[in-house]
Lab assay of single mutants.
Amino acid sequence: MLDDRARMEAAKKEKVEQILAEFQLQEEDLKKVMRRMQKEMDRGLRLETHEEASVKMLPTYVRSTPEGSEVGDFLSLDLGGTNFRVMLVKVGEGEEGQWSVKTKHQMYSIPEDAMTGTAEMLFDYISECISDFLDKHQMKHKKLPLGFTFSFPVRHEDIDKGILLNWTKGFKASGAEGNNVVGLLRDAIKRRGDFEMDVVAMVNDTVATMISCYYEDHQCEVGMIVGTGCNACYMEEMQNVELVEGDEGRMCVNTEWGAFGDSGELDEFLLEYDRLVDESSANPGQQLYEKLIGGKYMGELVRLVLLRLVDENLLFHGEASEQLRTRGAFETRFVSQVESDTGDRKQIYNILSTLGLRPSTTDCDIVRRACESVSTRAAHMCSAGLAGVINRMRESRSEDVMRITVGVDGSVYKLHPSFKERFHASVRRLTPSCEITFIESEEGSGRGAALVSAVACKKACMLGQ
Rank of each mutant, 00 (worst) to 15 (best):
I351H: 07
Q465G: 14
V302A: 13
K15T: 08
G117C: 08
E272H: 04
C230T: 15
S340T: 09
C382M: 03
G258P: 15
Q18H: 14
A379R: 02
K136P: 03
Q26A: 10
M197P: 02
R428Y: 10
D3C: 11
E331C: 05
E435M: 09
Y413A: 07
Q465I: 10
E265M: 02
K31V: 10
S321V: 09
P432Y: 09
L79H: 04
G44N: 08
V452C: 15
M393C: 11
P111G: 08
S353P: 08
I225H: 01
K56E: 06
Q465D: 12
K90S: 15
R333H: 14
V408L: 09
V203R: 02
A119W: 01
G193M: 12
E268P: 11
G318D: 12
R428S: 12
K102Y: 07
F195P: 00
G407N: 06
E51T: 09
G385F: 00
Q465W: 13
T362K: 10
Q323C: 10
I404F: 11
T405P: 07
L25Y: 08
E442Y: 15
R46W: 05
G227D: 00
I404N: 06
I439C: 10
V401H: 12
E319Q: 15
T342P: 08
M235C: 06
E93S: 08
I163T: 02
G249D: 08
Y215L: 12
R403M: 12
F334A: 12
V244A: 13
M402D: 14
K104M: 09
E112K: 08
E272A: 11
R392Q: 07
D311Q: 14
G294S: 11
N350E: 09
E67I: 15
V452Y: 15
V335R: 01
R43S: 09
I366H: 09
E268A: 14
W99N: 15
L58V: 06
G448C: 08
F148S: 03
K31C: 10
I211G: 10
K56W: 03
F152M: 02
W99G: 15
A425Q: 10
A6D: 08
V367A: 10
A449K: 05
T376A: 14
V302G: 08
C382P: 03
R303Y: 04
K459T: 14
G261E: 06
C220L: 04
M210H: 06
F269W: 15
V427H: 03
I439Y: 09
E256R: 01
E27K: 03
S340V: 12
I390K: 01
F334K: 05
R308D: 14
H156R: 01
E421H: 12
V55G: 02
V367R: 00
V33C: 07
L185M: 06
E248M: 15
R303Q: 06
G299H: 09
K104L: 13
K143Q: 05
A11M: 14
A173E: 01
K140P: 04
C252E: 04
G117L: 04
T116W: 03
I436L: 08
D187Q: 14
T168V: 03
E443T: 03
A454P: 05
V305H: 15
E339D: 05
